[in-house]
């Protein structure tokens, strides 16, 4: 029997293999590290994102399938009942209508004013910085402070608006307590607060339009009017569209001014989406129903955003 001798390696070879093995191991550990590194980098972000953004979205839809309120403290599965309840509640439709009115009231005015002011500010004139600061400062103060300012200015009898209104022959009006005017008073405050922000976004859009287009147009004898409608407006359309979408989304997020100025009144005339959710969740403790309304709001805003991106990519001109 020819027994194969156990292969015997000289000590040096053994050491060498060990070294190679160790190197191999270090290299593969490095390779694992290289693979894992990006995930480690994004881990902190996704940790918070998951707990406070993704999970709440999913959980909101889940909770919206339950009856869960003071009368039913133990959650009870009811399917789509909360959504059906929203659909058959006149107040839900009124809130939706209020919100649409708020958006419709805000958007054309904001866009026209912000664009107009951006065009004026874009001229090379003296005192530019002062005008810009004066128009922009409401963006950086809290909406809560803006609400206080306008509560005082719109107050009946002693408010500034009523004083000068009376001088013009208007009656003394309790703007925020009047079912016809309260929502428009909120729109006014919203426009005042956000105008400057929209203006500087238009300004950013204006500044990337190449100067030579205007020079060529002037050589061709185009009037300022023609230059605006043939060059500025079309090249600005992505910005305009963007501001419009932002204004719609902002409108559906309005809450501070409702809470501080009207509490949704008078007679729910200024009850907007987020306030309605707040009332149901934290005043009536109807978490199931409030979750369903949150879910509906979520879908509306998601739909608008997706629509915005879709149209933005397909239709609008880009310089």
């Amino acid at each position: 029997m020819n027994r194969m001798a156990e292969p015997k390696f000289p000590a040096s070879v053994v050491t060498a293999t060990r070294v190679v093995g160790a190197r191999e191991r270090v290299r593969s550990r490095r390779r694992v590290m290289a693979l894992a590194r990006p995930y480690l980098y994004i881990l902190p972000t996704f940790f918070f994102l998951f707990i406070f953004t993704h999970y709440p979205i999913l959980k909101t839809f889940y909770l919206s399938l339950f009856k869960w309120n003071l009368a039913t403290p133990k959650r009870e599965f009811v399917g789509l009942n909360n959504y059906l309840q929203a659909g058959s509640t006149p107040l839900f439709w009124q809130v939706l209508q209020n919100n649409v009115l708020y958006a419709v009231g805000t958007i054309p005015i904001s866009i026209a004013l912000a664009l107009g002011l951006a065009l004026l500010i874009n001229q090379k004139i003296r005192g530019l910085a002062i005008y810009r600061a004066a128009l922009f400062y409401p963006t950086i103060i809290p909406m809560a402070a803006a609400a206080m300012i306008w509560l005082w200015i719109l107050t009946p009898s002693y408010g500034l608006v009523n004083f000068y209104g009376k001088a013009l022959g208007l009656p003394d009006i309790h703007w925020l307590g009047h079912s016809r005017f309260a929502l428009w008073a909120l729109v006014l405050v919203g426009v005042w607060k956000r105008l400057g922000h929209y203006m500087v976004i238009f300004l950013a859009g204006l500044q990337v339009i190449p100067e030579h287009l205007y020079e060529a147009a002037i050589l061709e004898g185009a009037s300022p009017w023609q230059r605006f409608w043939r060059i500025t407006f079309p090249l600005l359309s992505p910005t305009t569209f963007f501001v419009a979408i932002m204004a719609v989304i902002d409108s559906f997020q309005v809450i501070d001014q409702v809470y501080l100025m009207t509490q949704g009144g008078p007679g729910n005339n200024t009850n907007l989406f987020i306030f309605y959710i707040y009332q149901n969740a934290f005043r009536f403790f109807d978490m199931g129903y409030a979750s369903a309304v949150s879910g509906i709001l979520f879908l509306i805003l998601l739909g608008l955003t997706v629509l915005a991106f879709g149209i933005l990519q397909r239709r609008v001109h880009y310089a």
Binding site: L49, Y55, P56, A290
Partner: peptide, 26 residues
Amino acid sequence: RDLLFILLLVQLMIAPQSTVIQNYLT
């Protein structure tokens, strides 16, 4: 990467107010 980036952008697309109830509960 691309899918994760979209999952990140979800935060920009939603109103923070629509997650208030669940964040309050958490």
